[in-house]
């Protein structure tokens, strides 16, 4: 807990909390990053599950770097928001749910990307995703949904 109180006393926390615009700016950046990472992961996941057969699985997988870019934005903005009330967030159930969802979601991103690396060009031209990829895609959809619902409800519970 000492670390969390220290976080709350940093100059970053002060800026986010005390300046008029620190908090809204971070929150807004966090929303844009959310749309990028979750939006693109949703598109990839539903494609792996068989929706939108018109685009190939391989070409959709090219969205991974962009999704990681959104994730990077949200790691930074999320940490900035976290410093503001670190000791409170770690006791908030929706926050803990959100973090759990994100961790599982990120693991799924890594696992899905590994499938592509493993199979090389084979998966690029496949019209249907292998079972592994489908399983990861379902878990990924659920995990990011939980992450988003948890995140939204931090403000209410």
């Amino acid at each position: 807990m000492g670390f969390l109180y220290w976080l709350e006393s940093t100059s970053l926390a002060n800026w986010v909390g005390a300046s008029l615009w620190g908090y809204p700016i971070m929150l807004t950046i966090h929303s844009v990053g959310l749309a990028i990472v979750v939006g693109l992961v949703f598109i990839m996941s539903i494609r792996f599950l068989g929706v939108m057969q018109g685009v190939s699985i391989g070409s959709v997988s090219r969205l991974f770097p962009f999704a990681w870019f959104g994730f990077a934005i949200n790691t930074v903005s999320g940490l900035a928001l976290f410093t503001l009330q670190a000791s409170w967030y770690v006791t908030s159930v929706p926050f803990l749910l959100k973090i759990t969802g994100i961790v599982i979601g990120v693991v799924m991103m890594v696992l899905m990307q590994k499938e592509f690396k493993k199979s090389g060009d084979g998966l690029d031209s496949a019209s249907e995703a292998p079972q592994n990829l489908k399983t990861f895609a379902i878990i990924s959809l659920v995990a990011w949904s939980v992450g988003m619902i948890g995140g939204r409800f931090i403000a209410y519970i």
């Binding site: 929303s31 979750v38 693109l40």
Partner: peptide, 10 residues
């Protein structure tokens, strides 16, 4: 928002 943005951004 994420569904719309994901499809549009792609």
């Amino acid at each position: 928002m994420t569904i719309l943005f994901g499809a549009i951004a792609t």
